[in-house]
Design a protein around this nucleic acid. Structure first.
Lengths: 212, 212
DNA sequence: CCTACCGATCGGTAGG
DNA sequence: CCTACCGATCGGTAGG
């Protein structure tokens, strides 16, 4: 049961992991063509196995999607990049987080968002509730770093503040994905840092609360 | 050629418009199940005609999607609601716009976003460029109302300012759609008005540019 | 893990 | 505008 290695062990396929190959192929194909636009035959082909072999690892196509959605969702990378931000004050912290995000996810906004929209449109969000319950506590913890014990904040409700922050990044990915190269350069350069700036200070002058 | 009505004219189907019926059925089905998840037979059935009849109005399924995407996209309603906002200063204007949006689109965020994501995922954005060129000038004009001749703005680059505004609404729809009822009430009540407030003033106290 | 097959359904068309 | 059909492909399974 411990480290007893029988001589009849399989011929050691040298890190070949079929299950993972299936999931990787599926993630790429789902992201490119949607769920109904991807066939089991394509998934098997891209994973380098036969159709029947795929059904030896997963009971159905939907099970493959579910595994991809839960295990391969890029939100982990997103949170890791935000949490790893460095800086003494909230301003430096948030701009460093933006910088981290710009390196990775901005290059491929579709990968970050496509799985979510397939889930919402093609599955009507039936797997969302469980996903939310897994991700929500992690988001709360991650946000502590930005908002806890800060005296220079206006004191907006914490969850509203957090929702605004998520919306900030969400919206940047969306507009980048939807309009991307159609946007004029002056709407894109340093875009995420400007969004952070708006989030922190707003678009109005600080001393003008009212004006005609 | 003018108002000459022959006695052999069709029996006046009383405002029956098959083409429109097809588009309405298709919009609903695409929004619910995606493009590849919707069959021509379902569209024809929901429109109350036979499969062959549908192909008398559209050459292909993709042509139907294209017509839905261009003619029935809810962005027109979105822009109309934003443009119709009333208020003396930018603060009142934006909160009124938020109020208008809350009435209509917030109730059905999926309808607003699903067509866009089907286009992005299942069609890889091949129709986006034309859409962008139609919508962009209208967005620019609509935004004049908010940003032109205002002396109490910080003077951020206009397109950045606009992108932040679109992102604000976008992100609100997204988080409402994705997480909706999973969110605690304090993250939802007056949510859009809080987002407007963050957009205008930021989350930080106005006098604290730096702090340890 | 593969080959060969199942019934069902797909987008689209012929012919009237 | 309908019925009846086309070849292709779908998700999934049997049997080995």
């Amino acid at each position: 049961m411990t480290d007893q290695i029988a001589s009849s062990a399989p011929p050691a396929p040298l890190t070949r992991n079929t299950r993972q190959d299936i999931l990787d192929a599926a993630q790429r194909l789902f992201t490119e063509n949607g769920y109904h636009g991807t066939s089991m035959r394509r998934i098997a082909e891209e994973a380098g196995i036969s159709l029947g072999a795929a059904y030896n690892h997963f009971a159905s196509k939907e099970d493959i999607f579910l595994a991809v959605f839960i295990e391969l969702h890029p939100y982990r990378d997103l949170i890791a990049r935000i949490v790893s931000a460095q800086g003494d004050d909230i301003e430096a912290l948030m701009h460093d987080a933006a910088h981290n995000l710009e390196d990775g996810l901005l290059a491929r906004p579709d990968q970050f968002l496509a799985l979510m929209f397939i889930e919402l449109v093609e599955f009507k969000g039936k797997h969302i509730s469980g996903f939310f319950q897994e991700i929500f506590p992690q988001i709360i913890v991650a946000s502590q770093r930005f908002f806890s014990n800060r005296e220079n904040l206006r004191g907006l409700p914490p969850l509203i503040q957090l929702r605004g922050l998520l919306g900030l990044f969400f919206s940047y990915f969306i507009t980048e994905w939807v309009f991307g190269e159609n946007l004029p350069p002056e709407a894109r350069e340093n875009g995420l840092h400007y969004m952070v700036d708006i989030y922190l200070h707003g678009i109005m002058k600080p001393d003008s609360k009212e004006a005609a």
